[in-house]
Design a protein around this nucleic acid. Structure first.
Lengths: 194, 194
DNA sequence: TGTACATCAGTGAACGCGCGTTCACTGATGTAC
DNA sequence: TGTACATCAGTGAACGCGCGTTCACTGATGTAC
């Protein structure tokens, strides 16, 4: 019956902090993530998050790690098992869209010169890398997937960042999608000239 | 004879601020650029830079713009007029090296969610974009350079960022160079499969 | 079922910090006569 | 060549801010008996 039990003990402040951090990132993409702002948003005193995160960096790393997992889900949702360049292009489109839909989050994941010692982050990154390798291997069974998967990842990642930073035309989602597809198509149609 | 004239009037504080900013960025890549720190480094009061920059953003934009120009010089120095995929790869290597040699500077140029209204920045960016187009057109005279130049730029830019963020093996410059060359080579050798 | 107590998850005051920016100022420079 | 004065490029004190982090604390929860 004590429904108002939520007064003092929060229940799951750890998760609430992550949620608050994400909301703040999505609302004001430019500002840096601050522990105090997260606490405020979670409706909790400024020091409460220290029960769950050693310091600000720990929170940021956790946010980034969640971002990686989410990115992986989005890619898988775009196409579970790509087998053709076109299907691969759909995954590429999902990657770039993910970045454009959550610019600040994407920047935290990649552009923040954060310590690379967070196991959570390293693991999540490795998972994405492996995932790309798998796709490339499936789409090009005969090719050594190492160089090519690096190429594919870098291409898509570069497209994401160039769009994010306004270096390419990002006026509408359709334009972006077309551009990404064109770039991936270009990747698979060029042959050495001279 | 008054060689000690340099006491009060600085001479060229505008340039000195840019230099100080670059030094700070190269020394401590992780910290954000602060106007006060720049002033301190330039040996000048905290408010002196306001004579030359309207606010912090103006300084950051100026630093970024200088970075773009410098990047352009580096690329041109790598190969003045690339005509083959291999020569193009040399330019790509220069691009990635530039990023790895000045990580913080490169991040200011690209990863800082800065206002896109700085004319200086927009112009510098357009110059790079044009430059890449020109190269691609020279290397592949018969191909529509639009999609392909986007592809090339994104690929190289993505390689730079993935290396910067430790997602790829960056143990030695040689390893990086080889990886970049391999990626560019992969770009020009794959053909659509099914 | 009730009580005693350890543990846990929160509070709130306080610290010292560096920041961006303003303001009235002052020292140096250069120009007009 | 010398003087008067406007202009320019600096100074330094001060503002209010939000931040990360510490500390001693207190309210709620759960477990042992």
């Amino acid at each position: 019956m004590p429904q108002a039990s939520s007064s003092y003990h929060h229940g799951d402040l750890r998760a609430a902090c992550l949620r608050a951090a994400r909301e703040l990132l999505e609302e004001d993409g430019s500002a840096g993530l601050s522990l105090r702002a997260v606490a405020r948003r979670a409706g909790v005193s400024a020091t409460a998050p220290y029960r769950h995160y050693a310091d600000r960096d720990a929170l940021v790393s956790a946010v980034a790690a969640e971002g990686y997992r989410e990115l992986a889900e989005h890619l898988a949702a775009a196409h579970p098992e790509p087998r053709t360049p076109d299907e691969l292009a759909s995954v590429a489109v999902a990657y770039v869209r993910f970045a454009l839909d959550r610019p600040a989050m994407f920047r935290v994941m990649f552009a923040e010169p954060c310590d690379p010692n967070s196991e959570e982050r390293v693991a999540a990154t490795a998972a994405i890398s492996e995932y790309v390798r798998g796709i490339v291997h499936a789409v090009f069974p005969g090719v050594d997937p190492d160089a090519l998967s690096t190429t594919v990842w870098a291409l898509v990642h570069g497209l994401a960042f160039l769009h994010l930073d306004g270096k390419l035309d990002s006026s509408t989602p359709e334009v972006v999608d077309a551009q990404v597809r064109a770039a991936v198509r270009a990747l698979f149609s060029v042959s050495a000239a001279p």
